[in-house]
Simulated scan of single mutants.
Amino acid sequence: MYQTSREINLQNAVSVAQAGLSVIAKGETVFDLSALAVVDSSAVAVMLDWQRAASVAGRAMEFHSVSANLLSLISLYGVADLLGMTPSSAERH
């Protein structure tokens, strides 16, 4: 399981995305977001990038410990389905 950084925002989104893409390329698709305390809309974009990379590789992403703030952004942008998070499954994350 890959542990993400504490923060994903506009300033670090590119480097965080690249770090995640690197581990996805090595076969890891289970991401623990429990350390993620600071997010903005960039976090949603990064997650979509990771989801796309995993999909291209024929794998399914799993996001664990998604914070209420991040779930709110995911819901606001209407991308829960794209991230494999239906309203009922988002509660489990």
Rank of each mutant, 00 (worst) to 15 (best):
Q3S: 13
T4L: 13
T4N: 12
S5P: 11
E7H: 05
I8D: 00
L10Q: 12
N12V: 04
A13N: 06
A13G: 05
V16Q: 06
V16I: 11
A17S: 10
Q18V: 12
L21R: 07
S22G: 14
A25N: 08
A25W: 08
E28M: 11
T29A: 05
F31C: 06
F31E: 05
D32G: 01
L33A: 05
L33N: 03
S34Y: 09
A35I: 10
A37C: 10
A37M: 11
A37Q: 14
V38L: 10
V39K: 06
S41P: 07
S41K: 00
S41N: 05
S42W: 01
A43K: 00
A43D: 01
A43R: 00
A45G: 13
L48P: 01
L48F: 00
D49M: 14
Q51F: 00
Q51V: 06
A53Y: 09
A54K: 03
A54E: 01
S55T: 14
S55K: 11
S55A: 10
S55Y: 07
V56G: 07
V56C: 09
A57C: 03
A57L: 08
G58C: 03
G58L: 05
R59M: 08
R59S: 08
A60Y: 13
E62Q: 15
H64A: 15
H64Y: 15
H64C: 14
S65G: 14
V66W: 02
S67A: 06
A68T: 09
N69V: 06
L71M: 14
L71E: 10
S72G: 14
L73M: 09
I74P: 01
G78E: 03
G78H: 00
D81F: 12
D81G: 10
D81K: 11
L82F: 15
L83T: 02
M85Y: 01
T86I: 03
P87A: 04
A90T: 06
H93R: 15
